[in-house]
Write a protein that binds this DNA or RNA. Structure first.
Lengths: 200, 200
DNA sequence: CTGATTTTTTAACATTTGTAAAAAGAATAC
DNA sequence: GTATTCTTTTTACAAATGTTAAAAAATCAG
C-alpha cells in the first residue's frame, strides 16, 4: 500500500478496485499491484483534465461527477462522449497508438477521478494475466457500447436519439448545457431546441 | 497438427496465423494450440455464413473475398459492416454476451474464411496469456475503427462519407450492390444515386 | 439470345435538418 | 441587485435527405 495516500484517497481507490472487479475478478496480489499505480484526482467545474494536442497517458474512471471528451470542428466544440459515475473515460486512439490526441477531456461539474498511468498499467499486463484480462473485458464493453451508439446515430432520427438518451440518463438534462448534448447527438443546437419544443 | 486437414486447409491456416501475429506475436506452443482449433470454410456468392437469430459462437477472418454483417429494420436489410481480405468479421454483441444475434453474416462473393470457435478460444485465453493479449489488441483495433466510423457518420455529409469510403476501399464499388453501400453509409439508395450523379 | 429479374437512376414532392440572426431567459460577477 | 455574459429558443429561409413511383440499365436463367 502506498503510504503517501490520505485515507480518503485510499478509500476511493478501494471503492474503484471493487467496482471494476465486477467485470472480471483479480487475484489479491494483482489487485494490490494495480492499487499501487492508481491515483485520485479531483477537479472543479469545467476544468480541463487532459488537453488537446497532448498524448493520452492516463486512463481515468469517474468515481463521482461527470466529464466529457470533445474535439474542435470548424472552431466549435463537438462532444464525442459523456462519462458519469463508474464510467471509463479515455482518448482511446491516442492511448493505444501513443499519438497526440486532437481531443480533450473536461469536467462538467466537480468530479472525482481515479487515474491509471498507462505505461505502468501495460507493464502490469506483462506480469499479471488477470489484469490484462480485466482490461480486455473493459475494452470489449466500451466497444459494444460504441457499436450501439453507431447504430443509434445511423438509424434513428434525432428525436429518437434524444428520447433514448434521457431514458438511459435522465440526469443529463439537469447538468449538461444543451449545446453539448446537441453535438453529442450529431445535430445542431437549434434542431435540438425544436425537438424539445415538439415533445413538451 | 490436425491430421484431418488437407494441405490447402493447413496452408490457409498457416497464412492466417502469420497475418494475425502482425498484431502481437505468439509463442510457438501458443501458435500451435491456436492452429489446432481453427478451421477453414469456403462459401459461394451471397451465401449465409451466420443466420439471424442464432448466437454467435465463431470468430471469422476473411482470407479471400468479402462479406458483410446486416440486420433488418422495417423489413429492409441494413448493412452494418463490410469485411475484406484480412478483416475480422464477428457479431460482437452476441459473441461477448452469449445472446442470440439480430444480425446475420453473408458473403458478397466467393469467400474463404478461417473460423475460430469462441468457446475453445476462450479456454485458450486461460492457458496462454499471449493468445488473450493478441485478441485484446485485436479488439482494441476494431474498437478504434468503430470510433472512427462513428465520427465520420456523425460529422461528415453523406457525400464526404461516400468519397472517404472509396479512397480507403476502391474495390467496394466494383462488387457490392449500391443498396448495401447506401445503408452502410446511413442514407437511402436514392440519395446515394444523387451523390454519385453529382460527382461524375 | 431473350425474357425475367434485379439494380440503379431519375423525377416530383415532402420532411428534416442546417444556417444566421435576433430575442428571451438564466447564470454569474461585481 | 444590476449589468454582463452565456445559454436556449424562436424565426425565416436554405440545403440536404427521405419517400414513392416510374424509367432505364444491368444481370441472370434457361
Amino acid at each position: 500500500m502506498n503510504l503517501n495516500r490520505t485515507s480518503n484517497e485510499q478509500e476511493t481507490i478501494l471503492k474503484f478496485l471493487k467496482e471494476i472487479q465486477s467485470y472480471s475478478p483479480l487475484e489479491d496480489h494483482s489487485e494490490k499491484a494495480l492499487a499501487n499505480i492508481c491515483f485520485t484526482q479531483k477537479v472543479g467545474k469545467n476544468e480541463v483534465l487532459q488537453e488537446i494536442g497532448k498524448t493520452c497517458k492516463t486512463i481515468y474512471f469517474v468515481m463521482e461527477g461527470s466529464a466529457r471528451i470533445f474535439y474542435l470542428k470548424d472552431g466549435l466544440e463537438i462532444t464525442e462522449y459523456f462519462a458519469f459515475k463508474n464510467d471509463l473515460i479515455v482518448r482511446a486512439e491516442s492511448l493505444f497508438k501513443s499519438l497526440p490526441s486532437n481531443k480533450g477531456i473536461v469536467s462538467i461539474e466537480e468530479t472525482l477521478f481515479v487515474g491509471i498511468p498507462s505505461n505502468a498499467l501495460f507493464s502490469l499486463f506483462d506480469e499479471f494475466h488477470d489484469i490484462e484480462r480485466l482490461f480486455r473485458i473493459l475494452i470489449q464493453t466500451v466497444y459494444l457500447e460504441t457499436i450501439k451508439r453507431l447504430e443509434s446515430i445511423q438509424f434513428q432520427t434525432a428525436e429518437e436519439r434524444y428520447k433514448g438518451l434521457f431514458e438511459n440518463h435522465p440526469e443529463f438534462i439537469q447538468k449538461i448545457p444543451l449545446k453539448h448534448i446537441a453535438s453529442y447527438l450529431g445535430i445542431t443546437q437549434v434542431s435540438l431546441s425544436r425537438i424539445r419544443a415538439g415533445i413538451s
